[in-house]
Write a protein that binds this DNA or RNA. Sequence first.
DNA 1: TATTGTTATACTCTATAACTATA
DNA 2: TATAGTTATAGAGTATAACAATA
Lengths: 153, 153
Amino acid sequence: MSKTKPKNSANSGLRPTSRALPIALLRTREHIMEPIRPMLAEIGLTEQKWRVLRILTEIGPLEQTAIARHACLLLPSLTRILSRMEADGLIRRAQDPDDKRRSIVQISKQGSALIEAHQPFSNQVYRDLEKKYGREKLDLLLDMLEEIQEIKF
Amino acid sequence: MSKTKPKNSANSGLRPTSRALPIALLRTREHIMEPIRPMLAEIGLTEQKWRVLRILTEIGPLEQTAIARHACLLLPSLTRILSRMEADGLIRRAQDPDDKRRSIVQISKQGSALIEAHQPFSNQVYRDLEKKYGREKLDLLLDMLEEIQEIKF
DNA sequence: TATTGTTATACTCTATAACTATA
DNA sequence: TATAGTTATAGAGTATAACAATA
């Protein structure tokens, strides 16, 4: 019934790390990613590249500043990542004719094929999570996470 | 009432990224970290070093394998991080007399002082979050995150 | 034989600033 | 003047393997 308190020494008034949101989010993410990482390693994609492909699949052709925002990447990082992905044939870049500073990034057939080939695995991981955690609770959690992201600090 | 669906092209049966838990967790964490990062930069700590200090404060002297697990770091990364932190006087390492393979890491006075000096800021960020998001909801969210971390995949 | 931690290596990401081209 | 993206650079983290010391 009663939770065991950490028997610590110098913890004067600081929340335990399990109740510190940034750390809790990180640990949860690491835990969730554990079964997913071997799959990404197998198809030779970093998590970052994977996110870029997912976002391009979801939204469609997109300028780089927007991709960086959606994928939680800095623009200089994205530049390098996209160069490599373009060389690997996963995406294409084209100058925006209306604003020549912009370049529009689009997923390639090969990139789409990679996403599609992975989809059964991804869905299976998700179903497993639904089964072990509960569909409604998972849905609620995703709602709650979205709501936090809308807060202005 | 009805949620607006993303008007995308090739999104055949894949969850939107906002409903993919690893991405949602990452975005939420980035959003939360935004006001915290300038503070860390000011005191010259990376997020990783900050986590190590927090964990040592919470649990007390700890061997490196355990720190790595709690802080979501690989052991080789931790080795380098601790070397630097030891040189900077933030932690101390001592060989475990009972098992000479192990080394026990302990936070130093200077490290504790850094944590303490930061505490008002940390608490303020947390209160701000409670105020804008709701204390009960935040507590529920932390409970839910802890529960996910206990799932066996 | 297995475990703790270190070292080595190659790759990747982060963070910041300076820069180019365009608006 | 401001913005989109690139390049440069220094620092840091990731991932894997090999290793030494100890159990």
